[in-house]
Amino acid sequence: MRLRIKREDLSAIERHSKQSFPLECCGLLVGRRTGTEFEVLEAVPAENVKRSPTLFEMDPQFVHAVLSRAESRGLTIVGFYHSHPGVGAYVSGKDAEFLKLWPGVAWLIISATRELIEERRAYVYEGDEIRELKIEVY
């Protein structure tokens, strides 16, 4: 399974992650899923309403607006992204709770400090387990 993302979209996400340090940032990945491939066509930054270094949450109305707009274009939300300020791009206990509520949706996690991207990984909850996705930048 893999997450395909354009270099410019990934760069925008990584910039967002660095600029938000020491807080977590978040956003949505609009695109389409075909079989085992999650194709990102657009990265949409969202506000982290928690404004916290260890928590993020998106405004549900914003999520809904992005979702509706995507579906009206025949696309969907293939994923979400959020940053971990310098602690590694792993699925935290809290992340896992919400991953499980979004089966089949990719979660891209960026570990970033103000200066540097330490790690990027992607996961999906599918078939009752969290699996790692290969990230393919094009």
């Binding site: 977590e24 949505l28 928690k50 270094p53 999520v63 809904h64 959020h82 300020p85 992340d95 979004w102």
Partner: peptide
């Protein structure tokens, strides 16, 4: 529309 929150969090602060 009915859907779950998009939320989570890392374990350690800077």
């Amino acid at each position: 529309a009915i859907f779950p929150p998009v939320s989570g969090g890392a374990a350690l602060t800077p």
